[in-house]
Design a protein around this nucleic acid. Structure first.
Length: 455
RNA sequence: GCCGCUAUCGUCUAGGGGACUAGGACGCUGGCUUCUCAUGCCAGAAACCGGGGUUCGAAUCCCCGUAGCGGUACCA
């Protein structure tokens, strides 16, 4: 990259629905490259397909970007809104003869190719019928070379490309034309996008050259696949950014994990703050091969980020996810659960008993409420009733003599208490859980369990 | 079909001619810690797609296969 002029990148999603993980990674890489290089990021919405480009779809993408905390310096600019600029550029090519009108149908193009060979692109004859599509003239000789930051030079023989259509019969322009014009006119210096665009790049280069524009630098990112090795889609679980949010992942963890999909730094750094990501990221270091999205590793990364949050940040995140108020009660609950959850979604299973009656886990009851449970609960009830105080330390002090006194292993004493107060066999530490529940409610739940065991 | 891209543990990757007995991370297995579940710590199993070259020497460079993926629309 040249050091003298500021870089300018763009993220240009087409609003065909939710922002998928692949698109999110492309956005992230653009953002990281812009921030790393002290450049600018433009958000452009590729909405020239008016059928699919609804305002809801655009809103979804903006939402996803905001949730990921990826900001942009300019836009969102609508590609469709730049139609006059496109029309001007189109006219320029028509006037110079670089493009021409051709009324050939798909069938006729196919027939032409059958006649001229499979590796030969279609070449049409100009007609002056209004309402005919506009094609760009592609040379028969030579090759068009994409200087790719990730792959190096990639050359494509010109003769294998059709004189491709750049505008429909109604003169509305097509993607490969609009992109080339917009990138040039918006002063984009680096185009960082998915690998699926590599084969389209020569077309954009041809348009740029016909228009007399300098091309930007390109970087084509390897695609993301699902666990089955196929292109990532809804079938693969959390495939969109909003699904990631709903599953209880933290934006910073998602950024860290996504950055690692196709890019690595040294041989032993995995967990990175966003500042560190910005500092270390270079498009040139992105790998060449497709990566598989692995939610297991995301979960681990997320768990690490969750545990590093301050209690206030943690409570805030949990509250937002649960749709509750981040009050003192929730804060106390979070304090005893923070070490145990990998996603925000898992927190409720751990702390729900503090806000609701015990759950009804029959399996846990049958497993734990066996011989010895009744005396243990009776003894615990008495000890807790007599406890001097009810903070975790006092509760522990009251309960810890019980196993020895009853001649039982600690688990035989604590598990029945756990099932009595939570209804299930998994919870935060038993002393902390009792203290958080409070003496009155704890005793009432333990006594209810005693009553049920006696009946 | 044609044009193109890619190929290291199950997964993400480091490595770019000798430092490779191929390193790290997730996951997995075992152990320790332990009131459950987690966490944390320790240990272990686990890979250079195949074949030819080039070279004293190839995971690394070249060629050919194979496989996967992308493009090939008056979609983006």
């Amino acid at each position: 990259m040249s050091e003298d002029s500021p870089i300018r990148l763009r993220f240009a999603p087409s609003p065909t629905g939710a922002l998928h993980i692949g698109g999110a990674r492309t956005a992230l890489y653009n953002w990281l490259a812009a921030r790393h290089g002290g450049g600018e990021l433009v958000l452009r919405i590729e909405d020239t397909d008016r059928e699919r480009s609804t305002t809801e779809n655009v809103e979804q993408i903006l939402d996803a970007l905001r949730w990921l905390e990826l900001d942009w310096d300019e836009g969102p600019v609508s590609q469709a809104a730049r139609a006059e600029r496109h029309a001007l550029a189109l006219q320029q090519l028509l006037d110079s003869g670089a493009a021409y009108r051709d009324s050939a149908t798909a069938k006729e193009v196919e027939a032409w190719k059958a006649e001229h060979g499979a590796d030969r692109g279609y070449r049409g004859e100009p007609v002056d019928t209004a309402g005919a599509a506009v094609r760009l003239r592609v040379p028969d000789d030579g090759e068009t070379v994409v200087q790719d930051l990730i792959r190096g030079p990639v050359s494509f023989p010109n003769r294998s490309y059709d004189d491709f259509v750049i505008a429909r019969g109604d003169d509305s322009v097509l993607y490969n034309f609009a992109v080339a014009v917009d990138d040039a006119e918006m002063g984009i210096t680096e185009v960082v996008r998915g690998d699926d665009h590599l084969s389209n790049t020569p077309k954009q280069l041809l348009v740029l050259s016909a228009l007399g524009h300098q091309p930007p630098r390109y970087a084509h990112l390897p695609l993301l696949h699902g666990p089955d090795g196929k292109k990532l889609s809804k079938r693969h679980g959390a495939a969109s950014v909003q699904e990631l949010r709903d599953a209880g992942y933290l934006p910073a963890a998602v950024r860290n994990y996504l950055a690692l999909l196709g890019w690595g730094t040294d041989d032993d750094t995995t967990l990175m703050s966003t500042e560190e990501l910005v500092r270390r990221f270079r498009v040139e270091d992105v790998g060449k091969s497709a990566a598989i999205f692995d939610e297991k590793k995301l979960r681990w990364v997320n768990g690490r980020f969750m545990r590093e949050l301050s209690l206030d940040e943690y409570t805030e995140a949990v509250a937002r996810h649960l749709g509750r108020e981040p009050d003192e009660r929730l804060r106390g609950a979070c304090a005893i659960a923070q070490e145990k959850a990998q996603t925000l979604d898992e927190v409720w299973a751990l702390i729900g008993f503090l806000f609701e009656p015990p759950v009804n886990d029959e399996k846990a009851w049958r497993k734990v409420m066996v011989d010895g449970a009744l005396p243990a609960l009776e003894a615990a009830s008495a000890a807790l009733a007599d406890a001097s105080d009810f903070d975790p330390e006092a509760v522990e002090k009251a309960l810890s003599p019980l196993p020895e006194r009853l001649g039982a292993k600690p688990g035989k004493v604590y598990q029945p208490i756990r099932v009595a107060i939570t209804g299930t066999s998994v919870s935060p530490g038993i002393f902390e859980s009792l203290a958080a529940l409070g003496r009155e409610e704890s005793l009432s739940r333990i006594d209810a369990a005693v009553a049920r065991l006696r009946s």
